[in-house]
Write a protein that binds this DNA or RNA. Sequence first.
DNA 1: CGCTACATTGAGTTACCTCAAAAATTGTGG
DNA 2: CCACAATTTTTGAGGTAACTCAATGTAGCG
Lengths: 240, 240
Amino acid sequence: MGVHINACNKCEIRDTALCSALPEVEADRLHKIAYRRHYPQGKVIFDGGEEPESFAIVISGVVKLVRTKRDGRQQIVGLQFSSDFVGRPFGDLGSLMVEAATDIELCCLTRKPFENLLQQHPILERVLLQRTFDELDAARQWMFVLGRLSARAKVASFLQHVVERSHRVVGKDPVTVCPQQQFELPLSRTETGDYLGLAIETISRQIAQLKTEGIIETVGLRAMRVLDFPRLQAWAENEG
Amino acid sequence: MGVHINACNKCEIRDTALCSALPEVEADRLHKIAYRRHYPQGKVIFDGGEEPESFAIVISGVVKLVRTKRDGRQQIVGLQFSSDFVGRPFGDLGSLMVEAATDIELCCLTRKPFENLLQQHPILERVLLQRTFDELDAARQWMFVLGRLSARAKVASFLQHVVERSHRVVGKDPVTVCPQQQFELPLSRTETGDYLGLAIETISRQIAQLKTEGIIETVGLRAMRVLDFPRLQAWAENEG
DNA sequence: CGCTACATTGAGTTACCTCAAAAATTGTGG
DNA sequence: CCACAATTTTTGAGGTAACTCAATGTAGCG
């Protein structure tokens, strides 16, 4: 199904992903078991039942992590962008569902070989540990957004986050690198609501207000441009 | 200041903490560099500035992880109970503040020796990795609470969580083990508000309602008993 | 072109917040 | 041990941000 990679050194995320922190030998071992795979928007990659058969790194597109309750309410508990990882070696993901928010390309590592590699190369495990701590940090940061911000600030924070993660250029400040550049929203209004803990109508109204204030400009429903980044940041801080 | 441990095998959390998953040799090495330390309620253990000098495991009491913004608003992003860990080797905790929510006892591991040990014993790193993934899981679970639940369900979820973590007995269902047993709230109303993203008055009203419904019974301000656990769970699910 | 899915807009409701005061609890000095 | 202040919690009244329900508008697709 997937295509084996024969040139990690040509990889788009070579300098930012997990593998960038590895010495030559380990990076090489890793790339030997890696293969690329495309998924269309909406495809469920892992549904929370059995153990996922792979660990993966996002090459392009956005992956959403969803927690669902029996009654249907759901909360998106994470968005994984380019160079973020998805999965958990030596264990399961709990009741998490993993879905392609946009068309995506993944760098997949089949579970068993990956686990073997982890055991043979402690450095790999170290790097993964650091990435996991980073994820934990990000999750806690988002808890602040969910618990303490107004609808207006939540929406602004979300847009800010998407801009920064979509345009990330290695080692450069994303804002100065691509001012006013157009970008795609990875989520529908409903999904955005599930991410921010808001009703879709509230999302709509906040975006409308951002438009009339001249802070953003929309391009169709799924794309926009930020015209006044400092003011977007002010909104994200609840100082509108 | 701290007292060196000379009997890990008498440790209260020997069977649940990080070290429980280690082979004899590694556990032994770990216990040689560990020492115990008490902190009084309210003591700030790490304030988010420089690198913390230690990694620690909570023996008794509750530690709170706080994220603060310049304007004073703060969100408690985690509560660490007995046998949970606090800290991050090979990196810093970001802007996180760590504070004793109650009087606590910690099992401390000085940074450098602990990092050395991690490097020498991959199994230790593996175990820490798993614990970190568990923390990530818990953080995401709490995101659901913050984003999707009503005030009533938030408060019920909080109480449920405190009961379960306070009375945890190894390998047993906490509810059946200690029905209606009294327990201490680790947080003041203000802190509970900062944890749940609610005003303190709202917390108060919800607790009052739980009392009039006969679901709980308070013992002073900081302790209570759950009289009807199933109904508390129902509240936590938004089915009141 | 119509159909379906998604997004926006509007009107009315409600859950939670804010402000203010009373009550309970904790701490302190005589 | 009691009186007193300081702190925290509870209770009350009123306001508002966000929700719900319903209608309209817009994009995507066979």
